[in-house]
Nucleic acid binder design. Structure first.
Lengths: 190, 190
DNA sequence: GAGTTAATGTAACAGTCGTTACACTTACAA
DNA sequence: TTGTAAGTGTAACGACTGTTACATTAACTC
């Protein structure tokens, strides 16, 4: 045998490709412009990822890993919220930050693509629905969450994020989330 | 002069094109497949709409007109809700119906496209934010709506619609909306 | 009927797409 | 040093894209 394979090349290309789609979008991703930005050529992308479809899969899992790491860092640093309203404010403060905007925009693009072609983007539509109860539980929020609660909270935050991406109005969207948090406070106190 | 122009041809093509994108999506719309479905050819689409961009504009306004008509028909038929929770349930029952699913899916696709290319889809991002307060007022809902309320209600219903498109679970998403309606009832009564 | 313009159809243009054939260099094991 | 496989680059393939040149038919006014 000679010259062992170097998995680092693929990983480096994948990370750069994730960066690329975060700013350029993934819907009309083409090999040649991407390759040019990565200082290589379409031939190499095919070589390392097998096909455009394989590249898309790798990018998707790259985004997933990166976001999982982000949430993990959130949970390690700082004190965790103990009530549902506190959790809502805790989550919103982080996900609505300008740094998270590119990935939020990308996720909405993935939703649209997955709605038209679910098989090409497996898990994109189902994961968020399963993610919320898990996150709330992992955070150690006291009161258990009902199915309707989880659905509404996911919907409200997702809708507010769409509004935020569309209008860049963090003040107004944050006021919307604050109202939601207070509605839950009123219910728990009353 | 000879042979006056027939605007009906363009209108008929536009209506058929709207039907087409409702089922096939608009993100990767190409002239030739569309033309084939419309029993014509790409040459004619360019002739009647000037360019692909002009065709897209016409399709967009066609969708807008159709949806405006749909809402108008909703308002004419049946009694209007007078309270905010009643309005939420009134609106959700209609917009979550299977008949509305294609246009809801298309709108989410348009959101994603507009997030990447706002100038190509003018109004798509801004209109919904302005639409809700107007609709609530036109319905004659008694209590005036605050900015935070409008933002949260738009976000929640939009988020629930995204969930509905993604999972096709009308029972769970309707339970989410029911919870939202009750939260507003509790606040108004307390 | 003559003249004029709308509407249509075919075929091609230049450009981009994903993918591949072929030649080539690089880096390691023996 | 030689053999072998990994990695790279160029150029091309066929298919598709929006658009257009050219020819033709259809429908109207005079």
């Amino acid at each position: 045998m000679a010259r062992p394979a170097d998995p680092g090349i693929r990983l480096r290309l994948r990370a750069q490709a994730v960066d690329y789609v975060l700013t350029h979008g993934i819907g009309d991703l083409a090999l040649r412009p991407l390759a040019k930005a990565l200082k290589t050529n379409a031939r190499m992308l095919i070589y390392h990822f097998g096909s455009r479809e394989g590249l898309m899969r790798e990018i998707l899992s790259g985004v997933r890993e990166r976001e999982a790491g982000r949430v993990e860092r959130w949970m390690k640093a700082g004190r965790k919220p103990r009530t549902m309203p506190a959790f809502l404010r805790w989550y919103w403060r982080r996900i609505s930050a300008p740094q998270a905007r590119p990935v939020v925009r990308l996720v909405f693009e993935l939703y649209a693509l997955a709605l038209r072609n679910p098989r090409e983007f497996p898990g994109v539509l189902e994961e968020p629905v399963a993610f919320w109860p898990k996150l709330v539980q992992a955070m150690g929020v006291q009161s258990p969450i009902s199915e309707a609660e989880a659905t509404l909270l996911l919907a409200a935050t997702r809708g507010l994020l769409l509004d935020l991406c569309a209008t860049s109005d963090r003040r107004r969207t944050t006021a919307g989330l604050e109202l939601l948090a207070r509605l839950f406070e009123i219910r728990e106190s009353g």
